[in-house]
């Protein structure tokens, strides 16, 4: 099981970049937490989530 933003996926692996594309999440407007750590932006393309991984994608919207 892979969990992203609370949603569970019964898959062995998910490419992070595929997930971001599918959800229309722009890398320059997000931060990604993977298993308790912030994932560096330079690793977005190569990162493949595996069974048991938990991730949170935080989207920033404008306003302050």
């Amino acid at each position: 099981m892979i969990t992203i933003n609370g949603e569970q996926f019964d898959l062995q692996e998910i490419k992070l970049s595929d997930y971001l594309n599918e959800k229309n999440l722009k890398p320059e407007r997000i931060a990604v937490e993977l298993n308790g750590k912030i994932l560096p932006k330079s690793k977005y393309n190569e990162t493949i989530l595996k069974d048991g991984d938990k991730a949170e994608v935080v989207s920033f919207v404008g306003g302050g």
Binding site: R29, A31, P40, V61, G64
Partner: peptide
């Protein structure tokens, strides 16, 4: 205010 600046600084 700007979402790009927010994401930049946090990351």
């Amino acid at each position: 205010d700007n979402p790009l600046s927010k994401a930049m600084l946090v990351n």
